[in-house]
Amino acid sequence: MRDPLVTTPKITARNVSVYYGATRAIDDVSIDVTQDEVVAFIGPSGCGKSTFLRTLNRMNDTVPSARVEGEIYLDGEDIYAPSMDVVQLRARVGMVFQKPNPFPKSIYENVAYGPRIHGLTHAKGELDDIVEGSLRRAGLWDEVKDRLTDSGTALSGGQQQRLCIARAIAVDPEVILMDEPCSALDPIATAKIEELIHELKGRYAIVIVTHNMQQAARVSQRTAFFHLGHLVEFGATSDIFTNPRAERTKDYITGRYG
Rank of each mutant, 00 (worst) to 15 (best):
H230A: 15
R222A: 15
F225G: 12
A224K: 07
S238N: 13
F226Q: 09
T223W: 15
E233G: 06
M213A: 03
V219N: 10
F234T: 06
L228F: 09
T249D: 03
K250I: 06
T223H: 14
L228I: 06
A216I: 06
A246S: 02
G235K: 04
T254L: 14
S238W: 08
P244A: 01
H230N: 08
M213C: 05
I240P: 02
N243K: 01
N212G: 04
N212F: 10
G235I: 04
H230I: 09
E247Y: 05
A217C: 11
I253R: 01
F225R: 10
F225L: 13
L228V: 08
A217H: 08
S220E: 15
V219A: 15
G229Y: 05
H211F: 11
Q215L: 15
T237R: 00
A224R: 10
A236I: 11
A224C: 13
S220Q: 13
T242L: 03
F241N: 01
Y252L: 08
L231P: 02
T249I: 03
E233L: 08
D239S: 05
M213K: 01
T249L: 06
D251E: 14
R222Q: 13
G229T: 03
A217T: 06
H230M: 09
D251G: 10
A216E: 08
D251C: 11
H227R: 07
Q221D: 15
A246P: 00
A216M: 09
D251W: 06
F234I: 10
D239C: 04
Q214N: 14
H211V: 11
H211Q: 13
G235Y: 05
I240L: 07
T254A: 12
A236H: 07
F234P: 03
R248V: 04
T242Y: 00
V232F: 03
R248W: 02
G229K: 02
A224P: 09
T237N: 02
A236R: 14
K250D: 08
Q214C: 15
M213R: 01
A216N: 07
V219F: 09
D239V: 09
S238L: 14
I240V: 04
L228P: 05
T249W: 02
L228R: 08
F225K: 11
N212S: 10
T254R: 12
G235V: 02
I253V: 06
F225M: 14
E247H: 06
K250P: 01
E233F: 03
S220R: 14
V232T: 07
F225D: 09
G235T: 02
H227T: 03
E247K: 09
H227K: 07
M213F: 04
T249R: 02
T254H: 13
A246D: 05
Q221R: 13
T210Q: 03
T223P: 13
G229N: 04
I240D: 03
H227P: 02
T242E: 00
R218K: 15
Q215D: 11
R218I: 14
T210H: 01
Q214W: 11
A217Y: 07
F234D: 12
F241K: 01
F225V: 09
R245G: 05
V232H: 04
V219W: 07
K250R: 08
H211K: 06
